[in-house]
Each structure stands twice: as structure tokens, then as C-alpha cells.
Design a protein around this nucleic acid. Structure first.
Lengths: 337, 337
DNA sequence: CTGAAAGCGCTAACAG
DNA sequence: CTGTTAGCGCTTTCAG
């Protein structure tokens, strides 16, 4: 059934070394032999055993890219942004013969380390998608020497992120152009991305000559149970009587609509709202959401690029890729005044 | 750096066989030796090499579960239903020490077969998620002898699906209870699932004593560019002047709302609509969508169960698991009459 | 340009 | 209960 390079060698009256060289396209082999070997390999339905390659080769490569999803178990890959990034990443790495596998989520309780996990499978490269960066186990992951690239994490050598600051600043521009000045900004924590976005908000205010009032900023987490309510309540009670609320992500904004409605506020007539991410449904729903689109295709491709560069020992021109965002206009913001 | 069972054997003055047995928890080893081996393994930071295990063990198992996503490249894992199923599947199989990796999508052009792909990585089991079943390459996948389980595909031994028929029939019950009788049903193709759902629609009409009119059924694909428009146009021009349209999935239904609006029809005041799947946003949006929830958690767990049963040579009690659906009420259907 | 030989780290009879 | 001995299928010096 399973044909090995040994079978091919016998068939072609040569050594396994020669077969191996041909199959890997290395060394100098006469084109006749090469052709013969390739043909019999094909005829015999030869498939290379990854395990054997991985075991024998000096670098122990398995041609496997590990994905770490550091996020609530029930969201994980269902986070639309992440699933899109992984999808485009996958398309790119598959072109180079790599396959993608998930790395188990390790908790502080596990004796196993990420380093061991990676070693055990001979993982060639790691892609890290994370919304938070808190646990000890996770920090350990940062020290793994395997080539890696992270999305939205700034404490790694290689990372990809969106132009968060510019995206938010552009949004402020847009809101101001629509007549809004009493804008409430919902800040989702204090991580690197949140920080960038906040800078963008302040920059936006500043360049539109809108005086900054600390009450404009309220704190609430990314989309989760109750986050829309929390953000909305804080915004409405902030004391600035906002005409627009900037939510930290689309799902929180979308969830806020019925909640606002319950409070007697209709979007966008009574209050304008914006999201972030630009998930599929934001364009399709009604009212369509004004949001900042993160270019997941470009992000996925960039992650692949940075990883593949490391894997082939090419120096990447840049270790950090910052992907432009795009303002998506819609119906959730009303022109006022 | 990397410690092997050979190192442990030397340290403990025993053979690699003994170490192997202890590590795999098989055979009879004195509890002293066992303890000693376990401790030094731990002390030396031993990690088993999957490649070596896979190569040496007779079944060539790699403890890898392959996932085949047979769907448009740009949707793929971003299909919310699929990403949820995979997520819950993953949680289950990881408990048993299996990891998940994606299987490349093979087209008819590829010389490589799925069988070879699976053999090459020593994949232990396959999970198939598919919306269509047409290509030759895909049919080939059905013949692979590796244990497999499919979602929504009826031509495999082991499969998991939702109670599609009952789900649709229940929806008809609900629409009728809300006063609707001129119901237009959008049929998404003629595959196994579409067939079951159609049966449900007819059953629903029948048990509510609503005469069947062939014009009630219109054809349009699952969510894709223009599918909402196509379905809606056909429904409105069907000649039955529907008061309710049943779309084949949530996203198509959601996209139909602004299109209907453009035609001057407001949901639900002028027309009622329903979806299928029960994606996250269907509950959160406004108007919330009346839909049939597919229990992705149960589906994912069931897939894992059927696969793990085969992998451990346990006979699964059932080779087919049909997961109940749940009608999610919402605001997109109006009570009339 | 080609081949012999020695492993990679582990499992699996088969003895003892 | 424990060890010996072959490999699994492939890569990799090192000769020729």
C-alpha cells in the first residue's frame, strides 16, 4: 500500500539518497535519473511521510504552523476578526506547503509549557491572536524561540496590527463633520491597542479643536455579556450628554441599539453610534453601522509574510507591519445642527 | 536541550522499553521504577516527539484530527456556524490529546488525493464541514478509509446534523400561529439538508391545513453576494403575495431587510421574515430575527464523540446523531389578521 | 553526479 | 517485571 523512497530506489536501481535529493530538489542529479525517479514516484503513488521527514531532518520541521487563540473559550475562533485573519493566513501559508494547526490553550495550572508543546509537534512557526496578555503562561509563550508573529501584541519582535490610532482619529473627523462635538469614547481596557486608539481619539479632538473633557472617556470591555449596557449607561451618565457614542467594536455597538431603544433613544435620530472592526453584518444590517474596517485579508497575509520570512531565513524588510484601516460610512450616524 | 527516552533510561539504569512503557502507561512495571522514571522525566523536562511516535508506532497515528472545510475560500472558517462547530469540536478532542489541523482544500486540478494528504500527515480522523458535495475530488474524500465524521452530509457512515425538517415545520407552526398563511419558502438548492428542510415546510403546511401552492417555493442560494435580492425578488413575484418569507439562513434574511426597505416594505410591519441558524447577531440586532437555532455546541460535541469512538475502536451506539433545533422568537415576524 | 552507512526518537515483538 | 533487537521512512555526512 504505502510506497516509500526505498521502493522507488529499488525500481530505479539507485540509492535512497538519490531519490531523496530528487524529491527535495537539491543537489546535482542527472536529468534522466531525475525524470525516471519523478515518474516512478508518481506511478507508485508515493506520498512523503511528514513524521519521517520531521524525525530525520536536522531542523525537525513538521511544516506545521501553530495558532494560539488567547481568548475566552466560547469565543475563540468564532471571533469574526480572528477567523478571517486565520483564513487568509491559511491561504498564504498553504501556498508554501505549511499547514495550520491549533495550539492548545495552556493555563497556569498546566505543567506543560508552550515551549514543550511546540517542540513536541515540531511546530515551525507560531501565530498569536490575543485580546489580552495577562497570564503567566502566556508571557512564557513570548519567550519561545520558535519563529512567531503576533496580531495586536506590541511586545514581540514581529507583529502585525491595524492603524488603530489613525482609524479612531478619522472617525472623530467624520463625527465632527457630521456636526457632533459631544462625543463619548468607550475605552476597552488599557492594553497596547486600547492605548493607540485612545491616542487617536485625543488626536481627533485636538485637530478638530474640540476641547477635551475627561468625562468623554468611559471604560467598558470589548463585546461580552452586558458590555453594551455597561458602556451605554456610563456614556449616558457621563455628564456630557453625548450626541454620539464610539463603541470599541461592532458587536457591542450593535447590541447597544436595542438597549438604547429601551431607554427611549433611537439610533441614529436620537443618538449616533459607531463601531470598530467592520464585520460582515455591519454593512448588511439596518441601520448600517458606521465603523472602522480592519483589513483582515491584509492582516492575515502580513502575518504569513512575516512568519514565512523567518522560516526561510530571509530577513523581512520590516518586522512590524501596520495595516491601514478604512472608515465605513453608514446610517448609524446622523448629521446634526 | 531536547531530552529523549534514552536519556531517561540511562539516568534510571533501565532500558528504553521500560521508559516507553511507563510513559505510555502500559505493561507491568514496578511502582518504584515507574515513580523513578516519571520523576526524572519531569526533572529533565522530557517532551515526547510526536514524529518519532508516529513513525515508530504501528498505526502511524499522529494524534491529529484533520478538518475539511468545503466551502468558498473567502468564507471558509468565517462561516459562523462552522467556526462554532469547530471550536466546540476542538475543546472535546483536545481533552483526549488530539489536536486539530486544517486539511488543504483540494480541487480537481490537484494531482494529490485526499487519501494521500491524510496519509502524509498520519491524520487519525477527519471532520468534514461542507455546504455542497459536488466536485469529483470531494467525492474521493468519501472513500478515504480514515475514520471520519461529517456535518450535514448524509452519504457517510458517521454524520451529525440538525433536525432540519422539524425545525422548519416548527417555524411554519409559529408563522401560522401569528396569522400567516401566504408564506414563501426559499429553497437553497437540492442537497440533503435542503431536501429535509423542504419536507419540513410541506409537513408544516399540511399539519396546519394550509393548501400547498407550488408558487410558495422559490429557489435561491445560501448567503452570497446578491442572494438576498434574488430570493426576495422571486418571493415577491411568486404570485402569492406573501406576508412572510422564510430565508435559508440568517445572513440572507438580515441582508434582505434593507433590500425590502428599498422596495418600500418595512420588516415586520409590511412583511415578516425568518432566518435559519441562529447566529449571534440575530438575537442582538434590531429587529431581532425569528430563526431556527442550530445547536453548534451539541453538534461540535457530537462530531467529536463519533470520531473519538472510532479512534478508540469503541462502537458508537449510534453512527448518526441528529441534534434538536430551537425556535428563536423575535421581532421580525408580526402578528397579523 | 551517486551511494553506503549511520542515525532521528520511539515502539514492538520476543526473550528472559 | 525488564531488556534485546529490529526497525518506522527519511536525511545527512562522507566517500567515491
Amino acid at each position: 500500500m504505502a510506497c516509500t523512497i526505498y521502493d522507488i530506489a529499488k525500481e530505479c536501481n539507485c540509492s535512497t539518497t538519490t531519490v531523496s535529493k530528487v524529491l527535495n530538489n537539491v543537489g546535482k542529479i542527472s536529468s534522466e535519473k531525475r525524470k525516471e525517479i519523478l515518474e516512478t514516484a508518481n506511478a507508485l503513488g508515493y506520498v512523503r511521510s511528514q513524521s519521517a521527514v520531521s524525525l530525520a531532518s536536522s531542523n525537525k520541521s513538521s511544516h506545521l504552523i501553530g495558532v494560539v487563540l488567547h481568548i475566552r473559550e466560547d469565543r475563540s475562533i468564532t471571533h469574526e476578526l480572528f477567523s478571517e485573519i486565520i483564513n487568509y493566513l491559511r491561504i498564504e501559508v498553504e501556498k508554501e506547503g505549511y499547514d495550520i494547526c491549533f495550539l492548545r490553550n495552556l493555563t497556569n495550572k498546566d505543567k506543560l509549557t508552550y515551549s514543550q508543546l511546540v517542540q513536541s509537534r515540531g511546530i515551525d512557526g507560531i501565530v498569536i491572536l490575543s485580546l489580552s496578555t495577562d497570564t503567566k503562561k502566556f508571557l512564557e509563550l513570548m519567550d519561545v524561540k520558535t519563529p512567531k508573529v503576533a496580531f495586536d501584541l506590541f511586545n514581540t519582535d514581529y507583529f502585525v496590527t491595524s492603524m488603530n490610532k489613525e482609524g479612531v482619529a478619522d472617525m472623530v473627523d467624520y463625527l465632527v463633520s457630521m456636526g457632533h462635538t459631544r462625543i463619548c469614547y468607550v475605552r476597552p481596557g488599557s492594553g497596547g491597542v486600547a492605548k493607540k486608539r485612545l491616542e487617536g481619539f485625543l488626536e481627533g479632538l485636538s485637530r478638530n479643536n474640540i476641547p477635551y473633557d475627561p468625562r468623554m472617556i468611559v471604560d467598558a470591555p470589548y463585546y461580552s455579556k452586558g458590555s453594551a449596557k455597561e458602556a451605554t449607561d456610563k456614556a449616558l451618565n457621563s455628564g456630557i450628554n453625548p450626541t454620539a457614542i464610539m463603541y470599541p467594536d461592532d458587536y457591542t455597538a450593535i447590541s447597544a441599539i436595542p438597549y438604547l431603544r429601551k431607554l427611549g433613544l433611537k439610533v441614529p435620530n436620537d443618538i449616533s453610534i459607531t463601531g470598530f472592526d467592520g464585520v460582515e453584518v455591519s454593512k448588511v444590517m439596518r441601520p448600517s453601522l458606521v465603523t472602522v474596517r480592519q483589513d483582515t485579508k491584509e492582516i492575515g497575509k502580513s502575518c504569513a509574510k512575516l512568519l514565512l520570512a523567518q522560516l526561510s531565513n530571509r530577513e523581512a524588510e520590516n518586522k512590524r507591519i501596520i495595516v491601514p484601516t478604512k472608515l465605513l460610512k453608514g446610517e448609524s450616524v446622523k448629521k446634526i445642527n
